[in-house]
Structures are given as structure tokens and as C-alpha cells.
């Protein structure tokens, strides 16, 4: 009787095991897509003066931005600030211009979804000033969108001849 049960048990096991087997498992993968932004600017262009004597110096900074802002409540902006004033001394200065009216100013262009700054803006060392703004649920293209800042620097006869360098910092942010 005992032997009979043992053999029957093995027969059942063989039938159940079978040939070939497939089992599965599942993983839930979650992605939290949040606001993001990034910006790149091209290599610095020198300020040049053209045309009449003592015409202002001009230069252009081109940039590419990528942005995604939060639906409904998000926003974004691109700003610029002179983080290092012109040096050496004796030339132009953003913080302490040698003559009243001397300034580093700019105008903006930027493709949608950005809204570029309007009019002429004076750059500052003390605070960031606007280049462009974005609304909620803004999306740039996958390869980025373009914009530019066209700089104008007063050509004051008081400047001593020489080469002067300043650093301006662009910042893009998104919420």
C-alpha cells in the first residue's frame, strides 16, 4: 500500500512538471516630469564700433534655450547680470561709469515660447535684468530655441585706449 502511494506521487509530479516553463513578473516604472530649463550661449563677440567717430560699441550674444514649465502654475525667465565689471580701470564701467549717461544696454530677441524683453534695458552689476519670460506649460523644441542679446556700450572719449573685459552671466529658470 505504501509503495503504491509513493509511485502514484511520482507520477503526479512528473505530469505537473512538464516540459518548458514560462513565468512572468511586473515592474511599475514611474517618471515625475518636472519643470526644467537649460541655456547655452555662443562664444563671446568683441564689441566693435563702426561708422562715425565715437559711435557706440556694439556686440551680439546669441543663445539657445530649452525649457519646460509646469502646467497651469509654472513660469520661467532668462536674465542677465554683469558679474564682473570692465577691467582694467580707465575704461568703461557698468557700476561706476566715468561719465553720466555712459551705460551698457541691450535689446532682446527670442523665439516662442519665450517673450523677449521689450525696449532697451540697462545692464547692471547689482541685479539681474530680464532677457525673456515664459508662461505656464511652456515647451521649447527638443533641439532648443534661439534668442539673442544685442549689446550697446557708450563710446565715451574719456576712455583710455586699451582692451577691457567684463563678464555677464545669463540665467534661465523654470518653475
Amino acid at each position: 500500500m505504501v509503495k503504491t502511494f509513493a509511485i502514484a506521487g511520482m507520477m503526479v509530479c512528473l505530469a505537473a512538471c512538464g516540459f518548458g516553463q514560462v513565468t512572468t513578473g511586473t515592474t511599475n516604472v514611474t517618471a515625475n516630469i518636472k519643470h526644467e530649463a537649460t541655456l547655452s550661449v555662443d562664444a563671446s563677440d568683441p564689441f566693435l564700433t563702426t561708422g562715425s567717430v565715437f559711435n557706440n560699441y556694439t556686440a551680439t550674444t546669441n543663445f539657445i534655450y530649452m525649457i519646460r514649465t509646469t502646467q497651469s502654475t509654472g513660469s520661467g525667465k532668462i536674465t542677465v547680470q554683469v558679474t564682473t565689471d570692465f577691467s582694467p580701470t580707465g575704461g568703461p564701467s557698468v557700476a561706476t561709469p566715468p561719465s553720466v549717461g555712459d551705460a551698457l544696454t541691450y535689446t532682446c530677441t527670442a523665439s516662442a515660447p519665450a517673450t523677449p524683453c521689450s525696449g532697451t534695458v540697462t545692464a547692471k552689476t547689482t541685479k539681474a535684468t530680464s532677457v525673456a519670460t515664459f508662461g505656464a506649460d511652456a515647451h521649447s523644441s527638443t533641439t532648443g530655441n534661439s534668442g539673442s542679446v544685442v549689446w550697446t556700450l557708450t563710446n565715451d572719449p574719456v576712455y583710455q585706449t586699451g582692451s577691457y573685459t567684463a563678464i555677464v552671466t545669463f540665467t534661465i529658470s523654470a518653475t
Binding site: Q21, T24, T26, R68
Partner: peptide
Amino acid sequence: NLSLADTPALTSGTYTAALTFTISST
């Protein structure tokens, strides 16, 4: 190593996908 492309075109939010793994043998 899972990698989900992050492009500006994506709308913000939380998204979930189910991955089903299958093992088979003969």
C-alpha cells in the same frame, strides 16, 4: 539600465508604465 528620454516637449506630471518580464526555458 532604464532610460526615458527627457525632452522639453513633455508635459509636466507623473506618469507610470508597467513592464512585464517573462522567463521561459526549454
